[in-house]
Amino acid sequence: MAPENSDLKMVKELIAIMKDNDLVEVKIEHGEDKLCLKRSAGQAVPLASLPQAAPPQGVTPAANLPGTGAQPPDETAEGKEDLIDIPSPMVGTFYEAASPDSDPYLQIGSHVNPQSVCCIIEAMKVMNEIKAEVSGTLSQILVRNGQAVEYGQVLFRVKPD
């Protein structure tokens, strides 16, 4: 890898390129050197000159929370490797239904196809409808209604058809 200052310059340039082109992830591999930069859609990398905000809180499994209908992950009964993750494409707040009066989009056992809406992620008062983009049966719900979620955080797991 090149000297440190050169690396820093390259990272800054890559951040600028990502921002200009609205990219959310860049991976570069050169021999043994690997670099991966990620940012949430529509969100920039935090200002380099300022201290970072607190690290995101750990994911609280939604298991046993009242009213969520969520189930605890069951890694033993059903191998995780058989399931497909549905990750959050952005930072925001997870909502299981279109409005407080509506039924949740999905429940354990729901069948989804790539066009099925599975939840809303709210970021800056933009309510983003998230689609499953996979086909199968919903096996796990890993977040609870109203929970803050991070980019890439797994929201659901689906047993493929």
């Binding site: 949430s40 969100q43 920039a44 200002l47 905000a53 925001g92 707040t93 800056m124 803050a148």
Partner: peptide, 20 residues
């Protein structure tokens, strides 16, 4: 697009991500 930057009463400057 990214958030608010506060000079905190208890010292330090932090940016607070909009979505959270």
């Amino acid at each position: 697009q990214h958030g608010l930057i506060l000079q905190l009463d208890h010292g330090g400057v932090r940016m607070f991500e909009a979505a959270h």
